[in-house]
Simulated scan of single mutants.
Amino acid sequence: MKKIFTMVAVMLLSISILAPTTTAHAAKGGFGFTLRIGDNQGRDYSSNVEKTDSAGYGAATTSYNDLVWSDKVYYRIHRKNWLNSRIAATSYYQVTGNSTINMWYFAGQAINGNNYQLEGDTDVYDAVVSGIWEP
């Protein structure tokens, strides 16, 4: 009986630890940009992701890029308004390697429950950038 009680307690503890982690990762959205000047003027947008907090910044974690040190690729977050138009929510932030960039929202643009998109922009001929982001 003691073994069964211990197993049930361990299972409940595992579920309580796992649930917040799963919820935290659910807010993150993936992005995969192939930025080509000839194809899309060097700019692309992720799909919409709903902001689930009121934090004053969004983060993009680049997990792959084929950039060299002289290539300039930038991220920017846009909020989608009720007309489904894009409103710039942050300035541009330059990508430097495979790392995380925090992008600070303009005043009044970090709105819980609104949809956001991540923009990738470049002036180089060809760039491939991918990773995860959270608005």
Rank of each mutant, 00 (worst) to 15 (best):
V129H: 10
G108Q: 12
I87K: 10
K3V: 00
G113E: 12
D123C: 11
D66M: 05
N48R: 11
N81S: 05
D126P: 08
W133I: 05
D126S: 14
Q117Y: 15
S16A: 10
G131K: 00
V68G: 06
M11A: 15
T62P: 00
K80Y: 03
G30N: 00
D53R: 01
K2V: 12
R36T: 07
V49K: 01
W82F: 14
L83F: 12
R79H: 13
I4M: 06
A88E: 10
E119W: 14
G113D: 10
S54K: 05
L83M: 14
V10E: 11
D44R: 06
T22P: 03
S63L: 06
I101A: 11
Y93S: 03
F5W: 08
V128W: 12
S16H: 02
L118K: 10
E119A: 13
Q94M: 12
Y45D: 05
D126R: 15
G32Y: 13
W104A: 15
W104H: 13
N81T: 05
D53K: 07
K51N: 01
E134Q: 15
S85F: 12
H78Q: 05
N114C: 09
E119N: 15
A107R: 08
N98R: 04
V124S: 01
I77P: 10
S63F: 09
T6V: 14
F31V: 08
F106V: 01
K28R: 09
K72V: 00
A59Q: 13
G131T: 09
Y45A: 06
W133F: 12
I15W: 09
S63V: 02
N81C: 06
S91V: 10
F106C: 00
Y57A: 10
S130T: 03
M7E: 09
H78S: 08
G56S: 15
E119P: 14
S130P: 03
Y105A: 02
I77A: 07
S63C: 05
N98F: 04
E134L: 05
D44N: 06
I87N: 04
I37A: 08
I15R: 03
N112P: 06
S130D: 10
S14D: 08
V8Q: 01
W133A: 07
S85V: 07
A27V: 14
V128F: 13
Y45S: 01
T23S: 11
Q94K: 13
T96C: 12
V73H: 07
G56N: 15
Y92R: 14
